[in-house]
């Protein structure tokens, strides 16, 4: 049986997909986006968070059976209310074998994968084929800029995006709007152009940056080093998507 490292299980996550949902946050991520708001999701191993209310260990090992039994206890409630389970992170695909085994134990629960898309294609296919809906992040279309701000090349992401479009699984593209980085006219236009013909695309969600992104770093003794000017207002452009024929919305409110 596979085991995986989870840094949180959170119920009633109203902004993580349709209906009443529970979100599982898997620990570990190959990306190092400078705006990352979940720094405890970066390292794949448990670590100590220390804050004014005390210390706690973030990250706990679960067997697929332990995790699925917690989720299955509330399966009928989630299903009856148009919801299900969302797997987020970190990058959930970094624990693809574990994730696939958990998903296989979930019966008919609606499953949503919230991913950066950065994974070997085989892992991507293996997990996505078990999903009902995918939230796929697209940050930067320019390869060099992607490396600079996230630490990784975007080609595996773009390749997986085209794989996704061929898999007949509905998906939402999510674009974090980082001031001066991802919210530029060029980048948004490139994203709109890159997604407008993809089969299975439901819509694009724009997620405007919020200045509290760095909040958890000090508790982990990490430095928050944004590669952009935090104070700069976010440029929210819906038109570029609408003129490309792409359904778009600003997710939640600014604070979400």
């Amino acid at each position: 049986m596979q085991s995986g490292t989870i840094f949180d299980i959170r119920e009633f996550t109203v902004h993580d997909g349709p209906g009443i949902r529970t979100t599982v946050f898997l620990k570990g991520c190959p990306l190092r986006c400078s705006w990352c708001q979940n720094p405890e999701g970066m390292s794949p191993i448990p670590e100590i968070m220390e804050n004014p209310s005390g210390k706690r260990i973030v990250g706990k090992l679960y067997t697929s059976e332990q995790l699925s039994s917690i989720l299955n206890r509330q399966a009928s409630i989630l299903s009856d209310n148009g919801g299900g389970v969302t797997f987020s992170g970190g990058e959930p695909l970094a624990q693809a074998a574990f994730l696939a085994e958990v998903m296989d134990s979930l019966g008919n629960l609606h499953v949503l994968l919230d991913t950066s898309g950065y994974a070997p294609e085989s892992d991507f296919r293996r997990v996505v084929q078990r999903c009902d809906l995918v939230y796929f992040d697209l940050k930067l279309m320019d390869r060099k800029a992607h490396i600079r701000h996230t630490g990784v090349d975007n080609s595996p992401i773009l390749r997986n995006l085209s794989v996704l479009a061929s898999m007949d699984i509905p998906f939402v593209i999510r674009v974090p709007l980082i001031p001066g980085v991802t919210d530029t006219d060029e980048n948004l236009a490139a994203i709109a152009k890159g997604v407008n013909r993809l089969s299975g695309l439901i819509r694009v969600d724009l997620l405007p940056y919020n200045r509290a992104a760095g909040g958890k770093y000090s508790a982990l003794r990490k430095q928050f080093c944004p590669t952009y000017d935090e104070r700069r207002p976010v440029h929210v452009d819906l038109d570029v998507f609408e003129t490309a024929g792409v359904k778009v919305r600003v997710a939640g409110t600014v604070q979400k």
Partner: peptide
Amino acid sequence: VRVWGWSGYFCELGPEYQEHI
């Protein structure tokens, strides 16, 4: 408290971020 695409425990946020919320 939820900020942007994430939830955090309020008490685990740095003071300046608490101020922000």
